[in-house]
Design a protein around this nucleic acid. Structure first.
Lengths: 247, 247
DNA sequence: CGTCCGGCTTGACCCGGGTCAAGTCAAGGC
DNA sequence: GCCTTGACTTGACCCGGGTCAAGCCGGACG
C-alpha cells in the first residue's frame, strides 16, 4: 500500500533527521520500509518529489497526458469522473499511505482534487515508467495495488447498483473506519474530511438523502456525530448488518 | 489483452496444426503472438490447460482460495458479486481474448459463471504466481491489464451512480460494440449472449426497465433487434449522445 | 398442429429517493 | 452583539424506475 520516498518532511526541513514522534514522518518511514530497500530505495529517493496542494486545487485532470503518480503523505484527495452536464461520481478517497494514479496509462481518465491541505510524494510519469522496467519489486507492488483497487471498485459497483441509501452510508462509514484502522489511526472517532456533497457523489445519492440517512443512523443509536464532523460507531455489529443487507 | 497459450484446439485434436481459417484458432494465435515469445512462450505452454464449461456452470466462486486465472478462448463468462439476500451485481462480461481472475489475490471476491459453452485457457494459481516472479514481460502485461480493468470499473461506477436507465442501456450497447470491434468481429449486428436479467444486473436495473428501454431505443430508431438476440446500431452518433448524457 | 414453457414485453400502480424550498446552526467579519 | 455566509437538516411534494400481474411469442415436444 505504501510507496513513499521523499525529501525531508517540510516541518523539519532545518533538522537533519525527522523526530520520531511526528506522525507525519512516521507514515513516511513505514512507507519506505515496506516498499523497497538498499540501492533500489536510493534510486527512488533521487526521483521522488514532495508536492503540496491547497484544499480545492486540482492534482490532475482527466483526458490529459498522465503527469505523475504518487502516494499521499498527508491530507485527503478525492478522485472523480464527470459527465458533460456536471453530474459527478467520486471513484475514491485517498488518505495518507494510499497510492494515486495509473502507472501504465498514458492519459488519465479521472480528476483528482485535494480536499484538505495535501502533501504527496510524487513520481513523475516518465521516471516511474522507466523504473517499473528496471525494478521488478516495484512492479510487483504496483500489480498487487492495482488488483486490490479493482476489487474495491467492484465492491463499490455492488453498492451503487444494488444497495439502498441506508446500506450505502453504513458501508461507507465502515470503509472509512477500516481504512483509518489500517493506517494505524486511533479508531474511536472517524474523521470525515469530505463534506455531504462529496459523500453523496461517492454513494450515488443526493446531499439531502445522505443527511437523512445520517439522521436515521443517529436516531437508531448506531452512530454518534461530534460537532467537528467526526463519527463514532456505537454499534459495530448493527452497522455491519445494515451494510451487508442482513439487518 | 491476450494471454492465451494452450493445447491444440479441441476441434482439430487429430490434426497436427490448426487450420488457418478457424476463427477460434485465430484467437489463440493472435493471443500467443502478442503475449510472449521464445523460451518464455514455451514455459507458458507447459503450464496452460484448456478447460471447457457448460452454460450455467460456475468457473470459480467468491471467498474461496484462488484456483486459477485464464483467458477466454470461446464463449462468454459473467463475473458477479452477491449480497446475502441474493441481490446480484454483474461486474463484467468476458469475451474471447479477455483475461479473467486476479493473479495476485489469494482469495477471489467474486463469482464467475459461463453463459454459453466456454473454452478457457487456464493457468493454475500457484503456477502463475511463480511465473510472474520469473517473467517480467508477463508481469508488465498483467499490470497494464489491471489498470485498464480498473479504469473500466470506475467508468461503470459513473454509470451506476449517476446515469439514467436510458443512458445506461445506450452505454452498454456501445461497450459491447466496442469490444466486438476490438476483437475483430464483424461489427454490424452485436450478439447478446446474456439475457435481460443479466443485463439488468450489470446496469443496476430490473428486467422490466431494461425491456422498456430497449423498446424506447427501437421506437426512436437508434437500434433494431433481430429475432436471435442480435442488436444493430442504426444511429451511432445519437446513441453516443444518449450514453454521454448530451442528447 | 396444439400446448406447454421460459423469456420477454407491456400495463397499472407504488415507493424510495430526488427536487425544491425553508429552517437551523456555527463560524467569521465588523 | 449582530449580520452574513455556507454547510447541513428537515419538510412537502414529485417522479423514475421498482413491483406486481397479465399478456405475448417462439421454440420444444408429443
Amino acid at each position: 500500500m505504501k510507496l513513499v520516498v521523499g525529501n525531508a518532511c517540510p516541518r523539519h526541513e532545518t533538522e537533519a533527521a525527522a523526530p520520531q514522534d511526528c506522525a507525519h514522518c512516521a507514515v513516511r518511514e513505514i512507507a519506505v520500509c515496506t516498499a523497497l530497500s538498499g540501492p533500489e530505495l536510493e534510486r527512488l529517493r533521487g526521483i521522488a518529489v514532495t508536492k503540496l496542494y491547497e484544499p480545492g486545487s486540482l492534482v490532475f485532470a482527466a483526458e490529459e497526458p498522465t503527469s505523475m503518480v504518487g502516494t499521499v503523505v498527508q491530507g485527503t484527495i478525492k478522485c472523480f469522473k464527470l459527465l458533460a452536464d456536471g453530474r459527478q461520481q467520486v471513484v475514491g478517497f485517498f488518505f495518507p499511505g494510499d497510492f494515486v494514479g495509473s502507472p501504465t496509462q498514458e492519459t488519465s481518465h479521472a480528476f483528482a482534487e485535494a480536499l484538505t491541505p495535501v502533501e504527496i510524494c510524487v513520481f513523475p510519469f516518465p521516471a516511474i515508467q522507466r523504473l517499473i522496467r528496471e525494478m521488478p519489486n516495484l512492479e510487483r507492488r504496483l500489480l498487487k495495488l492495482a488488483n486490490e483497487d479493482l476489487d474495491l471498485a467492484q465492491e463499490w459497483m455492488l453498492l451503487l447498483g444494488r444497495k439502498t441509501a441506508q446500506e450505502r452510508l453504513a458501508t461507507f462509514l465502515l470503509l472509512l473506519a477500516h481504512k483509518a484502522k489500517a493506517r494505524g489511526v486511533a479508531g474511536a472517532p472517524i474523521d470525515l474530511p469530505m463534506n455531504r456533497s462529496e459523500i453523496a457523489d461517492y454513494l450515488g445519492l443526493t446531499i439531502e438523502t445522505v443527511s437523512r440517512q445520517f439522521t436515521k443512523l443517529k436516531a437508531s443509536g448506531h452512530i454518534r456525530i461530534a460537532h467537528n464532523n467526526e463519527v463514532v460507531i456505537r454499534n459495530l455489529e448493527g452497522l455491519t448488518a445494515i451494510a451487508e443487507g442482513t439487518a
